[in-house]
Simulated assay, not measured.
Amino acid sequence: MMDLDLQEKRFGDVAVLGPIRFSLERGETLAIEGRSGIGKTTLLRIIAGLDRTFAGRVSRADRPAIVFQEPTLLPWRTALQNITLVTGASPARAGAALAEVGLAGLEDRFPAQLSLGQQRRLAIARAFSAEPDLLLLDEPFVSLDPALAEDMLRLTERLLRDHPVAAILVTHSTDEARRLATRRAVLEGRPARLRPLTG
């Protein structure tokens, strides 16, 4: 589903990543931990194809989906349209995805009419509506209060179980990594490299 052979990523004269090599198969979730500013989001952007200015190679599935730290919704479109317009999913498929994340009955609400937790649920519903081969999660639970974060964790656990994909979770939280991932690694050093974690 995904194979990464990153030799180096630079910002100007500064090498920030590399070398980093790993593969990921369907049904596996790799959690990448590390301190702020180490390069986790940069690595995710390279894998997603949003950053092409690096030395190396990325081979990934044809249908990636990404859930960003912020929901990145279309504010002038309804919840249903935020799925159908972005993913091409049918209204029926989009409605089923909204119901699956607990947003049934809110199809005609605009993002500003949804709570932050509901916006995060919509972003996750949109990602799974795309029927991705590769799912990228960039700190999707950041800035949530503990109760809401726990609710979102349980939802994501269920979705990953019910819709097995190759997934990469970027997180600061060891607890999130242990709960969601089948494999864990930490990004560390400068330039940053990936070190496998156990336990």
Rank of each mutant, 00 (worst) to 15 (best):
L4F: 12
Q7I: 14
N82K: 08
E150K: 11
F11A: 07
S129N: 10
G49R: 11
A94D: 06
R57Y: 05
G56K: 01
A48K: 09
L80Q: 03
E188L: 12
T198K: 07
G18S: 00
K9F: 09
A92W: 08
R178K: 13
L135H: 01
R190T: 13
D138G: 00
P164Q: 00
P164A: 01
L197F: 08
N82Q: 02
D151N: 10
L153T: 10
A96G: 08
L122R: 14
R21L: 04
V186M: 00
A177K: 05
D133V: 12
D51K: 11
P146I: 02
S143M: 04
L73N: 02
S23M: 06
K9P: 02
G37W: 13
S143L: 01
Q119C: 14
V165K: 01
G56M: 04
F128R: 04
G39F: 09
L106H: 15
T42S: 15
L194V: 06
P91E: 07
T29I: 15
L6G: 04
T72A: 09
T41I: 06
I47N: 02
A192F: 10
P64G: 02
T41A: 08
T29V: 15
S129L: 04
A65P: 11
E33F: 12
L134E: 04
T198R: 12
G37K: 12
D133E: 15
A166L: 06
A147G: 01
T87A: 02
R35E: 14
G37T: 14
R120D: 06
A181N: 05
A177W: 09
L73P: 09
L17M: 05
M2L: 15
A130E: 10
G18H: 03
L134M: 02
F68K: 01
L98A: 03
L106M: 12
G34I: 13
D133K: 13
L187D: 02
A185Y: 09
T29E: 03
A15N: 05
S59A: 14
L137P: 00
D133G: 15
W76A: 03
V58M: 09
A79E: 05
G27H: 07
D145K: 11
R57D: 06
R179L: 07
R35T: 14
L103W: 12
D162K: 11
R10T: 12
A61L: 04
P191C: 02
D62A: 15
P132T: 04
L122N: 13
D3L: 15
L98Q: 07
T29Y: 04
F11L: 11
I46M: 07
S173K: 04
A125R: 11
T84S: 03
L116W: 13
P91N: 07
